[in-house]
Design a protein around this nucleic acid. Structure first.
Length: 434
RNA sequence: GGGCUCGUAGUGAAGUUGGCCUAUCACGCCUCCCUGUCACGGAGGAGAUCGCCGGUUCGAAUCCGGUCGGGCCCGCCA
């Protein structure tokens, strides 16, 4: 029977069997301390017997061990418990030293990210790296739980799709049994189709972007949360829903994972229950007043404005999340619904300086949609779109939703400087392995 | 795609107005000492053709040209 490190306190005075990895050795002569790592954390093992210590000679961090010993109360030990009278068995000997440090925080300096990712397979065992991905796992769990509670159905849509897609980003092309296919850059069309089935659907899945972008916020394989909901009562319905989701998920994380957030040096959370909303025109104006730089001719927000408005909202509204509304109609996709005047019913959610979500209302009226497609130069009779239109012909209610970058959410929640650090094995223009 | 910038032991850094460099430090590794460590401590040791190729020079980690590989910003995009 295996006992986990977190269960040791329940077994004081009784011999237990532990299995895990050698995480740290400290030899003090007649007394040796080792840390054993398992899925629940670290345990300190004290070894006095010379023959037992000798078994660990030449064994590097990463060696897989079984330790039989007795947990005892020990205020001097980390966690207040340690293992005495230990017998060690090496299950998998490791004699090569790790290529990157496992027992100390790793450098996340931009210059060193290449080394970090080259040695990712081993480096992820580092406790600080683990904490990032523990947080990531919990964030996606909280999101799922929030969506299930609100009556959503989780779906899976194809990632191999026919040549024509929904436009926007560059796509990866590949050979599909002699036909040209692409990797899906978004489940956009499918999730709208599914509104006709379940009203409320979501998907957490990779999306592929072939942009030749080399920045701290772009990768070619991104994990997207896609949400779509039917029978909405206006665009604000969707904005409010996203706002409530983000608020619920982040406040829960800061409550339940203060320890992991501290381990990675995450910033304090400053969030209001109602996120401030500014139109892009207002942001251009405020930015110009504050910095003197005129961005009013820009259609979208510049990266610097995104950073600036988040700082502004944090000070002015006590909230690190802010909506930028009033996307100019010229940036509109054919499936977006027109808004007031020269705008689309679409907003961006910015958090800690970066866009993490785009929140449009969709055009649900078949005739209008066909017209907008034609205006955008998209052929409604193309097989990539005819199926999509069929769903509208057979009745889709007013609906809206959002695409939400999980990687960016994790990056900013943890306080990292590059979205790749929030991804186990990131893909970018010059990295395809590990 | 454009601009800027970086490349020194397994890891992180110093040295870069040419010569005190036979390349320095820390972590890690090896040997020895150490019974309360928890970034343990102490003594000693191994480990780098300074990304690669060529040039200038009496002399190049350092200057020049090329090349390869990174990074950051912009554009594009989410």
């Amino acid at each position: 029977m295996r006992t986990l490190t977190r269960e040791l306190k329940e077994h004081l005075g009784q011999p237990v069997t532990m299995q895990g990895w050698l995480h740290k050795k400290r030899l003090l002569g007649g007394l040796t301390f080792i840390n054993v790592r398992d899925r629940s954390g670290l345990a300190q093992v004290v070894i006095k017997d010379k023959d037992e210590v000798e078994k660990l000679r030449g064994m590097q961090i990463g060696t897989v061990l079984e330790v039989v010993g007795t947990p005892v109360d020990e205020p001097r030990a980390p966690g207040g418990v340690e293992i005495h009278d230990s017998t060690v068995t090496v299950l998998v000997p490791v004699t090569d030293e790790p290529p990157i440090e496992i027992d100390k925080p790793l450098s996340h300096k931009p210059d060193n990210l290449d080394t970090l990712f080259d040695n990712r397979v081993v480096g992820l065992r580092n406790l600080q790296e683990q904490a990032i991905f523990r947080i990531r796992s919990e964030l996606t769990r909280y999101i799922r739980e929030f969506l299930y509670k609100n009556d959503f159905v989780e779906i899976n849509t194809p990632k191999l799709v026919a040549g024509a897609a929904e436009g926007g980003a560059e796509v990866f092309k590949l050979d599909y049994f002699g036909q040209e296919a692409t990797l899906a850059q978004s489940p956009q069309l499918y999730k709208q189709i599914m509104v006709g089935v379940f009203e409320r659907v979501f998907e957490i899945a990779p999306a592929f972007r072939a942009e030749l972008s080399a920045t701290t916020r772009h990768v070619s394989e991104v994990t997207m949360l896609d949400v779509e909901m039917g029978f909405i009562d206006g665009h604000d319905d969707v904005l409010n829903f996203l706002q409530d989701m983000v608020y619920a998920v982040l406040t829960r994380l800061y409550q339940e994972h203060a320890d992991n957030l501290k381990a990675v040096g995450a910033p304090e959370l400053k969030l209001a229950e109602t996120f401030p909303r500014y139109t892009m025109a207002e942001i251009h104006k405020l930015y110009q007043e504050a910095t003197g730089k005129d961005m009013t001719k820009e259609i979208d927000l510049t990266p610097d404005e995104e950073k600036w408005v988040c700082e502004y909202a944090k000070e002015h509204d006590g909230c690190e999340a802010v909506f930028a509304t009033g996307l100019p109609a010229s940036k509109m996709k054919f499936y977006h619904m027109k808004g007031e005047g020269d705008t689309a019913r679409s907003a961006d959610l910015l958090f800690r300086g970066i866009e993490i979500s785009t929140v449009p209302q969709r055009e649900h009226r078949h005739e209008n949609l066909v017209e907008q497609m034609k205006a955008a130069g998209v052929d409604p009779s193309h097989p990539g779109f005819s199926h999509y239109l069929l769903a509208f012909k057979h009745g889709l209610p007013p609906h809206g939703g959002f695409g939400f970058g999980i990687d960016r959410l994790v990056e900013k929640t943890v306080g990292l400087g590059n979205v790749k650090e929030a991804i186990l094995f990131p893909r970018d223009i010059n990295r395809l392995a590990p």
